[in-house]
Amino acid sequence: MIWRNIASNFLTLLIVMLIAAAAAVAWAKHQFSGPGPSAVAQCVQVAPGASLNAVSQQLVEQGAISNSYVFRAGTDYLDKARDLKFGSYLVPPHASMEQIVGVITAGGPSTCGTEVLVRVGVRENTVLLRDMNPDTGAFEEMARFNPATEESPEAISVAVEKPGARLRVVMAEGVTSWQVVEALKAAPFLTGEVEDIPAEGSLAPDTYEVEKGRSRSALLAEMAQRQAAILAEEWEARPFGLPYETPEEALIMASIVEKETGVADERAQVASVFVNRLERGMRLETDPTVIYGITNGQGVLDRGLRRSELAARTPYNTYRVDGLPPTPIANPGRAAIHAALNPDSTDYVFFVADGTGGHTFSRTLEEHNAAVARWREIERQQGGDPTSPVQGDG
């Protein structure tokens, strides 16, 4: 009888323990998969070489999760304990532990935290310090400077040394290779000298994630590799009948298209104008090539072209020489390269600014002269000089 009571009591205890265990598992599963405690977005930072224990404690301290043990156990159960990726990641409000594990083990570019950007622009280069505001999910500018005219703020130097800081170079479409090199010289997180300016047009406008200490020459090599790959891909897919003998000629045309319009939808139309001119034996007569011949790509021409400059016979003065200029006049983006190799089918051979940022396209000289007259009137109303050479007059 005694043994029967003991067995009965043991069985009862075992059942209670199993129920408690099942309840604990259910609770832990709910804690791991259910909504998290943070009512705001959180910037979760994973330091290089950080352990799962350190990350879980950090997440508890910043209020992103409620229990470090459950977080570690769930991560182990998913077999992701060794998959932590260095970086700073923005997780949404009330993100579950499971969601956070997915974010910090997937990797990829950092999406929050401190960010130092070098922007290579057509008119100027800028170095920016930004920080993500977790409450809004937006980056807020903390400091900036123009390396050509200003000293770097101490805050930017401090940020570059900050663990987990995101370092990027953002290269705009239509900048010259000289402008890129000047920007990289001012990048506080890059190292090494640049011996030669890369060939014009050979660098791909894009955003480049870099690590502190990367060499400038290595980054330029990556830019060149990307551009070469883009050009090869677009050249291979080109239609028949275009007036280019080599990919380099298409790149030259793309650079002209890039500099002639900032309106994305116009690129293929602008390309059609210049293709039509080449096919009809007309000169390209485009101002950006003349400007490049004056500046050699080193900065911008902050004035209108002079009649003497339009009359001068230089390799880049397409008002005076036939065909394409000898080299690209900027680094075109993929869209401009695509437009040069896939121009619209039009009869247009002229275009001029229309006062809205775009252009009016014309098939005949009579139509073009009327469009120029309208543009002159707009210039007059805006206080410009209606006797100066027409800018943007393709």
Score class of each variant (00 low, 15 high):
Ile2Met: 11
Ile2Val: 14
Ser8Cys: 10
Ser8Thr: 03
Ser8Tyr: 01
Asn9Pro: 00
Phe10Met: 14
Leu13Tyr: 07
Ala21Arg: 09
Ala26Asp: 12
His30Trp: 15
Pro35Glu: 08
Pro37His: 14
Ser38Asn: 09
Ala39Met: 02
Val44Thr: 07
Val46Ser: 00
Pro48Gln: 12
Gly49Ile: 08
Ala50Cys: 09
Ser51Gln: 02
Asn53Val: 10
Asn53Tyr: 12
Gln57Met: 06
Gln58Pro: 00
Gly63Ala: 12
Val70Asp: 06
Val70Pro: 00
Gly74Val: 11
Asp79Gln: 15
Asp79Met: 11
Asp79Arg: 14
Asp79Leu: 12
Lys80Asn: 09
Gly87Pro: 10
Tyr89Cys: 05
Pro92His: 06
Pro92Val: 06
Gln99Glu: 12
Val101His: 11
Ile104Ser: 05
Gly108Pro: 10
Ser110Leu: 11
Thr111Gln: 10
Thr114Tyr: 03
Thr126Tyr: 01
Leu129His: 07
Arg130Glu: 13
Pro134Met: 14
Gly137Val: 05
Glu140Cys: 04
Glu141Arg: 15
Met142Ile: 12
Arg144Ile: 01
Glu150Met: 09
Ala155Phe: 00
Ser157Thr: 08
Lys162Asn: 15
Gly164Phe: 14
Ala165Leu: 01
Arg166Cys: 01
Leu167Met: 09
Leu167Lys: 08
Arg168Ser: 04
Ala172Lys: 04
Trp178Met: 04
Ala183Tyr: 05
Leu184Tyr: 13
Ala186Thr: 10
Ala186Gly: 13
Leu190Cys: 05
Gly192Met: 07
Glu193Trp: 08
Val194Ile: 15
Val194Gln: 09
Asp196Cys: 09
Ile197Ser: 02
Glu200Ala: 06
Ala204Ile: 05
Pro205Arg: 04
Asp206Ile: 04
Tyr208Asp: 01
Glu209Met: 04
Val210Thr: 09
Gly213Arg: 12
Leu220Val: 11
Ala221His: 08
Ala221Arg: 10
Glu222Asp: 15
Ala224Phe: 08
Gln225Leu: 08
Gln225Lys: 15
Gln225Pro: 00
Gln225Tyr: 06
Ala229His: 01
Ala232Thr: 05
Pro239Phe: 02
Phe240Gln: 13
Gly241Tyr: 09
Leu242Ala: 03
Glu248Ile: 03
Ala250Val: 07
Met253Leu: 00
Ile256Asn: 00
Ile256Gly: 01
Val257Asp: 04
Glu260Arg: 09
Thr261Lys: 14
Gly262Cys: 02
Val263Arg: 12
Glu266His: 10
Val273Gly: 00
Val273Asn: 03
Phe274His: 07
Val275Ala: 00
Leu284Met: 03
Asp287His: 02
Pro288Phe: 09
Val290Ser: 08
Asn296Gly: 12
Gln298Ile: 12
Gly299Val: 03
Leu301Met: 13
Arg307Met: 00
Asn317Cys: 04
Thr318Arg: 02
Asp322Ser: 06
Asp322Lys: 05
Gly323Met: 07
Pro328Val: 01
Ile329Val: 13
Pro332Ser: 07
Ala336Glu: 02
Ala339Ile: 11
Thr346Arg: 07
Tyr348Lys: 06
Asp354His: 09
His359Asp: 03
Thr364Ser: 14
Glu366Arg: 10
Glu367Gln: 15
Glu367Arg: 00
Ala370Met: 05
Glu377Asp: 15
Arg380Asn: 09
Gln382Phe: 05
Gln382Asp: 10
Gln382Lys: 15
Gln382Val: 11
Gly384Asn: 08
Pro386Arg: 12
Thr387Asn: 12
Val390Tyr: 00
